[in-house]
Design a protein around this nucleic acid. Sequence first.
DNA 1: GCTGTTTATCGTCAGGCAGACGACTATGAT
DNA 2: ATCATAGTCGTCTGCCTGACGATAAACAGC
Lengths: 248, 248
Amino acid sequence: MSPYDPSAYPPFAVTVDLVVLTVRRHALCALVVRRGEQPFQGRWALPGGFVRGDEDLAAAAARELSEETGLCAHDPAMPGAGNGAHLEQLATYGDPKRDPRMRVVSVAHLVLAPDLPAPRAGGDANSARWAPVDELLAVGDESAAGLAFDHARILADGVERARSKIEYSSLATAFCPPEFTVGELRRVYEAVWGVALDPRNFHRKVTGTPGFLVPAGGTTTRQGGRPAQLFRAGGATLLNPPMLRPEV
Amino acid sequence: MSPYDPSAYPPFAVTVDLVVLTVRRHALCALVVRRGEQPFQGRWALPGGFVRGDEDLAAAAARELSEETGLCAHDPAMPGAGNGAHLEQLATYGDPKRDPRMRVVSVAHLVLAPDLPAPRAGGDANSARWAPVDELLAVGDESAAGLAFDHARILADGVERARSKIEYSSLATAFCPPEFTVGELRRVYEAVWGVALDPRNFHRKVTGTPGFLVPAGGTTTRQGGRPAQLFRAGGATLLNPPMLRPEV
DNA sequence: GCTGTTTATCGTCAGGCAGACGACTATGAT
DNA sequence: ATCATAGTCGTCTGCCTGACGATAAACAGC
């Protein structure tokens, strides 16, 4: 086979699909939209759409994200500051039979966003909502309950990426508002990992890692008990040594 | 924009590119082929080619690998045993201008292989060779020296993935023949990371991690000094705690 | 105002693991 | 025989984590 022969390559459709994660009410949630067309009409699916002819993959993902949620993805090169969400490429799915109508290769992207008021259903989706990932990925017969296409697999991969990535990076702060307390950050870890963490050891760890957190104004806020110090994400992106995820 | 409208999506060409890494003479090397056509004629590039119309992405990568090197990629689900190389998806590159002729989205894959006799130039490549990655990625003016397309970027991403992945997985064994000594495995780490490791601490670490290595026959071989025990890759794929990469 | 509850924050202590290195063993080369 | 080269076993020290006690600062209710 002669590569790069413009007259003899099979045509593909290329899409981006988004795994948009956030932490709501102590649970890790993903954004899903209800499909308005066949196939899988009426089923929930990950948001996504076609990549345009002159558009980079990351740009297409950012555009879809904006259309679907109004979120503004910020470049990984620009840490902290903006309340834009973190966006990174996840993986690409190209099983010839993943879409019954035609050959579609989907470049999935992972978005980590702070808790947002309400998703706005945009474009083609009848509606959109945040659903706990445990619910979306619940195994069982789930005859008509599963996500459309191979989106359950994509979501599972995205969740696993998020779970492992907050171990060794400061990415958990992407789930928090610009200013947050140590307790809020801890609840993010607990929700994403689905475990309980010791507040004292967690506090020692995050405040003792240089560059992870920087005190913001030094004021306080409330969440229930004693006022807590406010922090902002520091410049460090990699945690070394990493945050250890309790086994089991 | 209405997703999944079969009559209104821009057509793409989809290719797979391969970052095939091995360790030769104490250096991390990548497989590159010389381009026989425009553009970038005569320049070195990563091996790759078009995905066929009915082919999965991983299958296309395995096929190209086989065509280019004769290597048989084994599924990640099947550890140890076969001398097939490790293959995993790396990332997807889709800049609209990455190929001057048409819109090409390339799904890059990472292959880790043991040291092989000689690459066989197959198909369209005038020739193929193993080149040290330091050489391929050397910064400088390198007016005509760099890799074709965005392959330098892809290679850099692949090398970085390999460097980080051998920290927390047993993947370094993919660079070794089926049976190997602790010293050989250590030299793999040293070559990939570009550092010197303490043989005694390394020995303690790898032999003390359950499931990483299993004694093979218990015989010995030689590499210079005292005979060493032969091992085989164990069932464990994740290293916990990870192998620590010395800083700088 | 007092008490109980909740959350934040500081400390202490023991165990595990990694880095630094000493010592000994078993080969081949000179 | 001696040296060089590698492999393997130990020791010691310092850092980090997990377990957990104790104190501090808010609020709810009496």
